[in-house]
Simulated assay, not measured.
Amino acid sequence: MSLLRNPARRELSATLVLAHGAGAPMDSPFMDDMALRLADRGISVVRFEFPYMAMRREDGKRRPPNPQKQLLECWRQVYAQVRAEVPGKLAIGGKSMGGRMASLLADELGADALVCLGYPFYAAGKPEKPRVAHLAELRTPSLIVQGERDALGDRPTVEGYALSPVIHLHWLAAADHDLKPLKASGLTHEQHLESAAARIEAFLLP
């Protein structure tokens, strides 16, 4: 399994395995930016690609994500590989789909923490079909960084869910699924990404 690493730039206190979302690779601008910000804050970041995205890297052809069973098995393999290599706190998570897959395995793997960026609580346009049943029973300490107007989980809808008490939600004002705020809000994407990184640092390095 090919891994992309951003070692912590100061004394290592935690490692975060970060999976990509459904449509963008592990080295997308969003993933690169977040990995660098976290590395600056003392969190080592390890990234990988699910099989369908690795194939796209080889031949350039866009494909839908692999079946969930295959995505989860890939996560298990990556976690086992990284766990054997790194000491100390090991968290898992990801952007959108990558974070959702991690959330399905966090308890099984015994991960120290879960970090999700833009969690897909439901498919776009289908809030009546939430994907939250397992989140009510989650035992792994979890942080979800979510835009208030995320089309896959906006604040009014998500606040109506019965989520496990171990889940901490960090809301970003006027932000979308990529944590970008409306220009009219007066806030910037840079500010929101920095806020997300700071909150992850406080969560993983208390």
Rank of each mutant, 00 (worst) to 15 (best):
F48A: 03
D32L: 07
F30I: 04
D32Q: 14
A22Q: 08
L71C: 10
V17W: 05
G60F: 07
P64T: 10
P51L: 06
G23W: 12
Y52P: 02
V45P: 02
P64Q: 09
A24G: 06
A35H: 10
R57L: 06
E58W: 01
R57C: 10
L71S: 07
D33V: 03
T15K: 12
P51K: 08
E58C: 03
M26C: 13
L18G: 15
F48P: 01
R41T: 10
F48E: 05
F48W: 13
R56D: 07
M53G: 11
Q70T: 13
N66V: 06
D27L: 05
R10I: 05
M31E: 02
R37A: 06
D32G: 08
G60P: 09
E73Q: 14
Q68Y: 08
A35F: 01
D40T: 12
G21W: 05
L72F: 03
D59R: 06
R37V: 06
K69D: 09
V17F: 07
R10S: 10
L72P: 04
D27N: 11
M31G: 06
R41L: 15
V45L: 09
Y52N: 03
H20K: 10
R57Y: 03
L16Q: 06
R37D: 00
A39R: 05
P29D: 07
A8P: 07
H20P: 08
R57K: 14
M53Y: 04
G60R: 03
P51S: 12
L16F: 14
K69W: 04
P25K: 09
A14W: 00
F30R: 02
C74V: 01
R57A: 14
N66W: 00
S28I: 08
G23E: 06
A8K: 09
L12A: 14
E11T: 15
D40Q: 12
D33G: 11
L12H: 14
L36T: 14
W75V: 15
L36N: 12
A14I: 11
S44D: 04
A39M: 09
A8M: 10
R9L: 13
G21T: 00
A14E: 07
L16V: 13
P51R: 08
L36W: 08
A35R: 01
M55D: 15
F30H: 03
Q70W: 00
A39W: 08
L38Y: 04
L36E: 13
G60Q: 06
P25N: 13
A8N: 09
C74Q: 07
M53I: 05
R63Q: 11
R10C: 13
P65E: 00
D40F: 07
V45I: 15
T15M: 09
E11S: 15
L16C: 11
P25Y: 07
A19H: 03
A54Y: 03
D59H: 03
E58M: 02
R41W: 13
T15F: 04
R56K: 15
R37H: 01
L16K: 05
P51Q: 10
R62T: 13
L38S: 06
S44G: 12
A39L: 08
R47G: 01
L12Y: 01
N66I: 09
R62E: 12
R10T: 15
E49F: 11
P25M: 08
